[in-house]
């Protein structure tokens, strides 16, 4: 399982953001994850506290925005929902589609517990 590697990379980024803003600790981290990113939100939640241990992100909350799988059909132009293993157009059923969302693995926001401790 690579979710621990992903969380370790996430925490490195979060700690860098905290350092850049002179913050002592991190309160909340928000990420966006799509089913086609190849990472499992439940496993990310388990791995997150382990990756945070001993860093300024220790004790922070992980928020996961699960992004829906959406495709646009190259034939009929419809934008529809799809399943991870059936990226077919929901309108005409053709497979020539382009993924609009669902493969994200993004650090969206870091909430720093900055001022209270700095003052």
């Amino acid at each position: 399982m690579h979710e621990l590697s992903v969380c370790q990379a996430l925490v490195e980024q979060v700690v860098r953001v905290a350092r850049e803003h002179g913050a002592g600790s991190v309160a909340r981290v928000t990420i966006g994850v799509g089913a086609l990113s190849g990472t499992e939100p439940a496993l990310l939640r388990q791995a997150y506290p382990i990756a945070c241990a001993g860093t300024p992100a220790e004790g922070s909350t992980l928020e996961i925005n699960e992004r829906p799988i959406r495709v646009r059909c190259a034939l009929c132009g419809a934008e529809t929902d799809a399943r991870a293993n059936r990226l077919l157009c929901g309108a005409c059923g053709d497979w020539h589609t382009q993924l609009l969302s669902g493969d994200e693995l993004l650090l969206e926001q870091v909430e720093l517990a900055k001022l209270a401790e700095a003052i």
């Binding site: 992903v6 990379a9 996430l10 980024q13 953001v17 803003h21 913050a23 309160a27 909340r28 990420i31 693995l105 993004l106 650090l107 969206e108 926001q109 870091v110 909430e111 720093l112 517990a113 900055k114 001022l115 209270a116 401790e117």
Partner: peptide
């Protein structure tokens, strides 16, 4: 006392 920073970076950057 909290400050929210928007990042929008791939987790594996």
């Amino acid at each position: 006392g909290h400050q929210a920073i928007d990042v929008l970076q791939h987790l594996l950057s």
